[in-house]
Amino acid sequence: MSALLDFYAKHSRLIDQIGVNAILALSLSVSLQAGQLALAQAAFMGIAAYVSTILAVNAHWPLFATIAVAVLASTVVAALLAYPVRRLRGVFLAIATIGFGEIVRVVANNLSITGGAEGISSIPNDATTPVIYGALVLVGLTLFVLSRTKFALAVALVREDEYAARGVGVDVGTIRTLSLALGGAIAGLGGALYAHASFFITPTDFGFQRMEQILVWCVVGGVTSPLGALLGATVLSILPEAIRFLADYREITNGVILLAVILFAPGGLSSLWRRGTIRVRV
C-alpha cells in the first residue's frame, strides 16, 4: 500500500494528465465515430477552460458549479457550430473547424476578461485525482449506455453510409448535431478539469497543436471505438515520460511511433489486441 502511495506521490501529475487527456480523446472519438472529421475539440476545451476559470477566479464559484456552467457553454457552442457546417464533409469540415478553433484562440488572445496572451493565473488547483477519474468514469459510463441505444446505431449508419441512413429514416442533421454537441460537452469537461489541474491557462494551450495532439491520440489508439481513444491517450501520455532516457530523441520517437501505427496497424493500437498479431502491409 505504501509503495502504491509512493508511486502516486511521484507520478500524481502525470496520472492526472492521463485522466484529462483520456477525456479529451473520448470527446473527439464521439465525432469521429459519426464519421465527422470535426477538429474543434481544442476550441471547445478552451471555451470551457476559460468559463470555468473566470467563474472560479473572479466570482469564487465552487469547482462543480464552474464545471457545470463551462460544460453547458461548450455544449451550446458545439451545437450552434453544427448548423453552419452541416453541409461540409471530410477535409472541408476539418478545415472549417480548424478555422473556428483559430478564431476562438484569437478572441481569447484579445479579450481582457481572458487575460489576453498572458492568460489567467492562480487558478485554484482543486481538480484532484478522484475528481478527474470520477469524471472519466462518468464519461465512459455515458458513452457505454449510449452505445446500447438506437442513437449509437443511427450514428454508425451515418458514418458508414449517409444516404442509406437517410433512406431508412435517420435524421442525419440531428445525429450530426447531437454527436458534435456531445463531443463539445465532453471536451468542455476535459477543458474545465485541465484548467483546474493547472496553475494557469493561455490561449496557446488550446491552439492547433493541442488539436493535433488529441487527433493523434485517437488515431494511434484506433478510431473505431472509444476504447481506442482511451488507449491512445494513455499510451502517448506515458510514453514521453517512459522514454525520458532517450532525451534528445523523444520527439522523433513520437513521430516514428505515430507513423508506424498508421502504416502497420491501420486500426490503431486497440485493433492489435483483437488481431493478436501485427500484419505488415506496405
Binding site: 471530410g90 477535409v91 476539418a94 493523434v216 520527439e251 505515430l258 498508421i262
Partner: peptide
C-alpha cells in the same frame, strides 16, 4: 482522407 492527414503530421513531427 483522415489517415494521410495524420501520417503527414507524423512526418512533420
Amino acid at each position: 482522407t483522415l489517415v494521410p492527414l495524420i501520417s503527414s503530421i507524423g512526418v512533420a513531427i
